[in-house]
């Protein structure tokens, strides 16, 4: 049984609106990190379009019923990007927008990494990189066992692919034929110490997943049309599917895109103004 508040899958939303949502996520991220004075701006900026398309178009959700059994699941493997997800969940009505103002303050439900028991709409806690593709396998297996048609989406970073457990999970998803599992790799090419390929290379990503029995697509993760097309095409395949979204860490704020040093940081007033002005100039176009 579904209620009137259900947001169906693959909603017809204007691509310009989705692109603007992505920039709004960037602005909210800057706003909230101001509270903590420390945060992962660039890791959110790389996946802003991916989050926008997922939540404002792709996922089947009911924000009035966060634990609805037939909702599509989304597990944020790269939990340090949760600050990009919180404004979206509040905007959709999962929890009051006022909660955002408590971000990282004593007792807040909202910390740097998401807590499923404190954040309505968060399908699984994360923070320790590499666990959550396995968790996604478990959630997708549950759908198979219960004969439910929800889809399980998981977002990983490309640096996260260095973790061995990711490949244990990839192996299992292939073995179990989890066609209801879709992984998105936010391939922004950078970890904390710099280029993933220099620190510990993981290319070719698609070939690796395909070798474990997955199908794979490589897309430009900032091209909303390409993201929409890939997310639509990723559903109901015959095998687990991975969408490798080629992105830029810090995307949307030029000085962050051009520097390898923004995995974690804080924008002082002057730099914050520059970043906000650059993003707003796109929104005013």
């Amino acid at each position: 049984m579904t209620s009137n508040s259900v947001l169906e899958r693959n909603r017809d939303v204007d691509r310009v609106v989705l692109a603007r949502r992505a920039d709004w996520i960037r602005l909210e991220t800057i706003r909230l990190i101001e509270i903590a004075k420390s945060g992962h701006y660039s890791s959110v900026f790389s996946c802003a379009e991916l989050l926008a398309v997922l939540y404002y178009r792709t996922l089947r959700l009911d924000p009035t019923n966060a634990r609805w059994q037939d909702r599509d699941r989304f597990v944020l493997g790269k939990g340090h990007a949760a600050i990009g997800l919180y404004p979206v969940l509040a905007d959709l009505g999962y929890f009051p927008a006022e909660w955002l103002e408590t971000y990282t303050r004593l007792g807040s439900p909202l910390g740097d990494h998401p807590d499923m028991n404190k954040v309505p709409g968060c399908d699984f806690s994360s923070g320790s990189i590499g666990h959550n593709l396995s968790v996604g396998v478990g959630i997708a297996l549950a759908a198979q066992l219960q004969k439910r048609d929800y889809l399980t989406w998981i977002m990983l970073g490309d640096g996260e692919l260095n973790e061995g457990q990711v490949w244990e999970a990839a192996m299992a998803a292939g073995q179990y034929g989890l066609s209801n599992l879709i992984a998105i790799v936010d391939a922004n090419g950078m970890g904390l110490d710099g280029d993933v390929e220099e620190v510990m290379g993981i290319e070719p990503i698609a070939d690796k997943f395909e070798a474990f029995g997955w199908s794979a697509t490589d897309i430009n993760g900032h091209d909303v049309d390409a993201v929409v097309e890939a997310f639509d095409a990723g559903q109901h395949r015959s095998r687990p599917h991975v969408i490798i979204a080629r992105t830029r860490k810090g995307k949307g704020v030029r000085f962050m895109e051009e520097s390898p040093h923004w995995h974690l940081g804080y924008l002082g007033p002057k730099d914050k103004d520059i970043a906000i002005a650059e993003i707003k100039s796109r929104l005013e176009r």
Partner: peptide
Amino acid sequence: PDRFINTGIAEQNMMSIAAGLAASGF
């Protein structure tokens, strides 16, 4: 047999899969 899952020699994966199953009603 339908309620039995062998993860192969991948214990950490098994634990996290179990967590996902538990989060989904099992």
